[in-house]
Computed example of a mutant assay.
Amino acid sequence: MSDPVSSIRNLGPAFEQACARAGIHSADELRQLGPDEAYARLLRAGTKAHFIGYYVLVMGLQGRPWNDCKGEEKKKLRQRFDAIKAGNSAAPENRMVADLDAVGVRVEPKDLKQV
């Protein structure tokens, strides 16, 4: 069994849940995808785009502290982030579902009792 996503430096339970919604279920899967493809999948699954979240992922996959990103490196990461964001926004209905999931409103059919 592979380590959980949250075993990667800087990535906690909330990021792990977002990854699960995007179909990424292990640290190995995340490493194999790399930060750009993984972040694109997160966006398509309804995660709200945020530059800090992206560079925290990049730094974590490099084994570096989240706040280690500075100067020219940060500028280049911002360009990559902007390109990923431009090409991978979720469809409006997927954003709504993700928002409902985030506040715990949506109910899955399996959660309903049969009468």
Score class of each variant (00 low, 15 high):
S2Y: 05
S2G: 13
S2D: 15
D3E: 13
D3Y: 02
P4S: 04
V5W: 01
S6T: 07
S7Q: 06
S7G: 08
I8L: 11
R9N: 06
R9H: 03
R9C: 05
N10M: 13
L11M: 13
L11F: 04
L11D: 03
P13R: 10
P13E: 14
P13F: 02
A14G: 03
F15V: 15
F15W: 02
F15D: 04
E16Q: 13
Q17D: 06
A18Y: 03
C19V: 02
C19N: 05
A20L: 09
A20E: 03
R21H: 12
G23Q: 09
G23R: 10
G23M: 13
H25S: 13
S26F: 12
S26Y: 02
A27H: 06
E29H: 08
L30Q: 07
R31S: 13
Q32H: 09
Q32E: 14
G34M: 09
D36C: 09
A38E: 11
A38G: 10
Y39R: 05
A40W: 04
R41K: 10
L42Q: 04
L42M: 15
L43K: 02
R44T: 05
A45L: 11
T47D: 00
K48V: 04
A49L: 07
A49S: 12
A49D: 05
F51T: 03
F51G: 01
I52V: 10
I52A: 14
G53V: 05
Y54R: 04
L57R: 08
M59Q: 13
M59L: 07
M59W: 00
G60Q: 12
Q62C: 09
Q62A: 14
G63E: 06
R64P: 05
R64L: 12
W66V: 01
D68K: 08
D68T: 02
C69T: 04
C69D: 09
K70F: 02
K70Q: 12
K70Y: 01
G71F: 07
G71N: 01
E72D: 15
E72I: 09
E73C: 05
E73A: 15
K74M: 15
K75G: 02
K75Q: 14
K76F: 03
Q79Y: 05
R80T: 15
R80M: 06
F81M: 12
D82H: 03
K85I: 06
G87C: 06
G87R: 07
G87V: 11
S89P: 00
S89T: 04
A90E: 05
A91V: 14
P92A: 11
P92V: 13
P92H: 09
E93M: 06
E93R: 14
M96I: 14
M96F: 04
V97G: 00
V97S: 01
A98N: 08
L100D: 02
L100W: 10
V103L: 00
V103I: 08
G104R: 00
G104Q: 00
G104P: 01
V105W: 07
V105D: 00
V105E: 01
R106N: 06
R106H: 02
R106A: 05
E108I: 00
E108S: 11
E108T: 07
P109W: 05
K110F: 08
K113T: 12
K113C: 03
Q114M: 09
